[in-house]
Every structure is written in C-alpha cells, then in structure tokens.
Nucleic acid binder design. Structure first.
Length: 548
RNA sequence: GCGCCCGUAGCUCAGCGGAUUAGAGUAUUGGCCUCCGAAGCCAAGGGUCACAGGUUCGAAUCCUGUCGGGCGCGCCA
C-alpha cells in the first residue's frame, strides 16, 4: 500500500550492488538520514561495508555503485545520486516531486497511511497486564497496558491479525488470601490487629469490598461466597481502570479453566511421557536443565499439588493449539526467570513448538518519586501506587504517552511532582497542540480538507516545507521498524519530532496567504501533518483533540 | 556467588545490525505575540557517551574485564 520512497531506492541500490558484485548476493543497501543537509536526503555506507568483502578501496566502489545505479535511480524520478564523498559515502538528493508526493499519498490514504497491506501471516497474540484479581492495577500494570496495547497496534499496522489477551488466576493461593482478608474485615478485624491473616492484603479496598459484601446480606462465614464476591469486585475495578486507560482486551483467559478443562493434567502427562521427569523427595521434577535452565524445576509438590509452573506451561500450550504461531508476552523483568522455564516446559512436550516460543518483552519496573523520594504506598492499595492514581494526577493521555515513551528496558522514574507541575508542558500536549493548531487553521479557512486531495503541490518548495514532507515520509518506516523491534517508544519520539517540525514551520510561514496556489499547497501539507499526527497518536492510544 | 537488564548534558531520556562535527525534552540565560492558538518559536551555554583494554582505516554502538545501580535466583505465584 505505502511504497515509500526510501524502500524503493534501497531496493534499486541493492539490486545494482548484487548485479555488480557476485560476492555480495546477501547484501542489502540501507539508507540513512544524514545529519547534515549538504549530504543530501539519504545516505549509505554500502561502499565502505563492501570494501572488505570485495577487497578493493571503498572510494572506488562508491564510484562503481553510483555508475551502476545512476540511471535506474534517475528513471524513478525520485532523486539523484550525488558524487561520493569522503571514504565513499553515497548520498542521494530527492527530487522536489518525490518530496511533495508523500503529501498526496497521505491525503489519499488517510488513516491507512503508514500501514502495510494485510499480510497472510499467522495469527499473533499479545498477552499483557494479566493481573490477578487481588487488588487494583499498579503502575507496572499501567506500563504493561501502554506497552502491550501499542505493540499490538504496531503489529496490526503491519497487516497482522492480533489478539489481545489477559490471563489471570482466579483460584490460587493468592485468591485464598484475598478471601481471608475480606472475611477478616467483614468480621470487624483490621490489619493492625493480631489475628489478621498472615499473607493477607491490607489496602483500603479490602474494607470497601467487605462492607459491600455485608451490606448485600453476605454471610461472613461463607468463605467461598466471599471469594466469588471479592474476585468479581476486583475484576470490575480492574476493568474500569483499563477502560479509563483506553485499553481493551479480546480474550480474558482464566487459569482455573486450565484445571477444569483437564489441560493441567494433560500437560503433566505430556511431561512425564517425555522421559524428562524424575521423582525426588516425594516430588515430581522436570529436567529443565536439559533446555538451558540453571536448575531443575518441581512439577508436582510432595503434597500432590502443582507448582504454578505447570498451568503456565499448559496455558502456553493452549496458545499454540489455538493457532497463535507468534506470541508476545509483556511482563516486568521481575518475571524474567520464567522465560527459560516456560520455554523449557514447551520443548519437553515435543509438540513441534519452536524453541524461542513465546517471545517476551520484559520491561523494567516503574519507580514513583515524589518530593525527591520514592513513593511505595497509596491509600487505596496500601503497598503500591495504582494506575488510577497516575491517571488522576496527570490525565490518561499524559500517562499513556509517558509510559510508552521509553524503551521497555529502561528503568522508569515517574516523578509525580514533575508530572503534575509539567502537566501543561508535557510532551503529549506538545504533540496534541500541533494537531489542534492544524484544526484551528482549517476552521479559520472554512473549507474542507477532503477537497485538498489531488491539489497541486508545486508551490511547496521552501526548505521547511520539504523537510516537513520528508518527515511525513518517514512514518511508514518508523512503524515498520518499531513493529519489528516491538519498540513503540519510537512512535512517541517520531511524533514529537514531527510536531516540533510543524510548530517550527507554523511559526515561520503563514498558511492562509493571499496567493491561492501557495495557500492550497500549504493547506494540503497541514492536512497531511494532521493526518499523520492523528494516525500515530491513535496507535499509542492517545487522543488527537481538535481544540485544547 | 550465579543469571538477566541498565550506566550518554544538572535532571528525564533517544541514538547502540559501527561511518561524515554525539541528539531531544527539561532546567538556566537572552530574544519573539497590532499578523492562521505564545500549551508555541528563535538563539546561547552545558557531554573524557561509567572506567580500562581489545577488534577496526573508523567504536556511544561489537568483544573482554572492572566498578556502580535494578531485578531474579522456593516443593510462593
């Protein structure tokens, strides 16, 4: 759909190189954006990379490559190959037509601009958040929600069919603790008193649930009824948090169903059949060290119950069986030890599942700082700061933009004071403001953006205008590489850059000028900017307001 | 002790399939609204890319080691 200029040029150069040098069959030319404008719009170090392979000086190769591809590049009308410079950098200067062309493309494709055509690819699953219903969502869940949802959207943008899944445990030991805690509250006990459940939950929400339970005529002696009530209440609360955050899931998968459907038993039988299990100290073990783990793992405890490892494996088997050939799990780095274990369990079952299945995006934890000190508690949840707190403090858009703006691996310091004092100069507002500004120009103008499709663009010749157009042209590539690397932060950075380029242009040039050709062309440029801003913001789950 | 992740400007962070003079925001300083929204723009100062070796014509980027920080190393989940 979007055949961008850069890809087209890369392809021509790659073909030229492969034809010219028999030893470079696997080589691909990659174009980069030079820092300095005099080096053209695109640049490649292909000649330098090939020098070793071919065994001749890079400068000479650069000349040869240029000669070999000069005509093919010229024929496209996209641009021209400049004389090689330095040790053999090959630079390309785009034609004005190529630079302007992207504007027409954006207006033509609208919300589809930047997206790859639907691929006949395998179904993809992104599993994220997966919080157990034992308390409100914390800031780490918020990061997972922002990351996971954006990763899913990125993969969709590349034509893949994506399922967003939330997995949770509604029946284990933690749930039992939850029920005991609510029961204790229902009986009038407080966490400060002796006799409070040992691993009980202490947040204020426990009391709320207990109060609601008794108010509804619930029996404080009926632990099972309490469990159901509490789980339902917390599921509702988490759903409300996610809704407030703008994240939707396609599937909620219950861990308890793995037991009732016999999938846990099946997994154990499969592991035993693999010959990789052994008995020791009354427990059943799996030799996960055969698959790269640093120690073997218990499958069935000496008391006959299973470790959490078993349903985990069974769960991932269902992902495979449900037809998901690519699965991405978004989790905190505190879970990184499960990666090897789950993969080992899947390998032991010999189901033909690839050894790297599933993929993981592990993010570092979020540290909330306020008044120069780390905040570890909140009134409602007790031992942690909630996602809801963050949303209340700075707003949904700002939280989503913030949380998706950093690489998953970076440790996230969320400075509350900063976020609050800067809530008006948060980067997200900078981007949204650019969008609102374009909308404002259009309402001043009074015409319809749709009428600008096919508008003549020849009047766009200023360096700022061409740079802006060039920035728009980058968008498809940004999505492609962000999707490939499962790195949505690249989208946030791109949007900031695009907004910056627009603000700069807006300040330097007037859009609604007398001359009709110039006015129309500039309006088309603005409409294209607005479209790409809206597309990118939508992808990371942030609104694109027309007024602020 | 072992494993994974991270150390880039005062602060928060990009860049890390090597390549032309290391970037942005914020903070600081100085300019710009009779003109499409100043939640904006323009400019200045600010970095031995933790440290030490190595590979390379060329390293923030790749390799090794050291130091510092985070997380994980249960018959908990």
């Amino acid at each position: 759909m979007t055949t961008d200029t850069k890809s087209a040029l890369e392809q021509i150069l790659t073909e030229g190189v492969r034809q010219r040098y028999p030893e470079a069959q696997g080589f691909s030319v990659v174009l980069e954006k030079p820092r300095r404008p005099e080096h053209g719009d695109y640049s490649t170090t292909a000649a330098l990379q090939l020098a070793k392979l071919v065994g001749r000086p890079s400068r000479i190769l650069a000349d040869e490559i240029r000669q070999a591809t000069l005509q093919a590049v010229a024929r496209t009308g996209l641009g021209e190959l400049l004389e090689p410079v330095g040790p053999g950098f090959l630079n390309i200067r785009l034609s004005k037509g190529a630079q302007q062309g992207v504007i027409a493309q954006v207006l033509e494709q609208g919300a589809r601009f930047g997206r790859a055509p639907a691929a006949h690819a395998d179904k993809v699953m992104v599993e994220f958040v997966s919080a157990n219903p034992t308390g409100p969502l914390h800031v780490g869940h918020g990061r997972q929600a922002a990351l996971g949802d954006a990763i899913a959207a990125l993969l969709e943008s590349q034509g893949q069919t994506v399922t967003r899944e939330f997995y949770y445990n509604d029946s284990g030991a933690q749930i039992h603790n939850l029920a005991l805690s609510v029961q204790a509250r229902a009986r009038g006990r407080t966490p400060e008193e002796a006799g409070w459940p040992a691993d009980g939950y202490r947040g204020e929400y426990i009391e709320e649930i207990a109060r609601a339970y008794t108010a509804g005529g619930g029996d404080a002696g009926d632990l099972e009824a309490i469990r159901k009530f509490a789980v339902a209440a917390l599921r509702r609360e988490q759903d409300a948090d996610l809704q407030a955050f703008g994240v939707k899931f396609d599937v909620y998968y219950l861990e308890s169903s793995l037991y009732t459907d016999g999938k846990v038993e099946a997994a154990v039988r499969g592991l035993q059949a693999s010959g990789k299990t052994f008995e020791q100290d009354g427990a059943l073990w799996l030799r996960t060290t055969d698959f790269g783990d640093d120690k073997d793992r218990v499958v069935r405890k000496s008391d006959g119950s299973y470790t959490y490892f078993v349903p985990d494996v069974a769960y991932h088997v269902t992902k495979w069986e449900r037809g998901f050939r690519k699965v991405i799990n978004v989790q905190g780095t505190d879970h990184h030890s499960t990666v090897t274990r789950v993969r080992a369990g899947l390998q032991a079952l010999h189901l033909g599942i690839p050894s790297g299945y599933p993929d993981y995006v592990l993010h570092n934890l979020v540290k909330v700082v306020r008044g120069g000190e780390e905040v570890k508690i909140s009134k409602r949840a007790g031992s942690y700061v909630t996602l809801r707190d963050l949303i209340d403090w700075v707003g949904r858009d700002a939280v989503r933009f913030f949380l998706v703006s950093r690489r998953a691996e970076s440790e996230f310091v969320f400075d509350v004071d900063l976020a609050r004092s800067q809530s008006e100069e948060n980067p997200v507002y900078y981007v949204q403001y650019a969008h609102a500004r374009v909308c404002s120009v259009f309402s001043q103008w009074g015409g319809a953006a749709a009428g600008l499709r096919g508008a003549p663009l020849a009047a766009l010749t200023g360096p700022r205008e061409l740079a802006l157009a060039g920035r728009l042209a980058e968008y498809p590539g940004v999505l492609r590489s962000a999707a490939a690397e499962l790195a949505p932060h690249a989208v946030a950075f791109y949007l900031r850059d695009l907004a910056g380029e627009f603000h700069s242009y807006y300040n330097a040039e007037r859009v609604l000028v007398e001359d009709e050709a110039t006015r129309t062309a500039r309006l088309a440029l603005c409409a294209a900017v607005r479209q790409v801003l809206a597309n990118g913001l939508a992808l990371i789950g942030v609104s694109a307001p027309e007024r602020m």
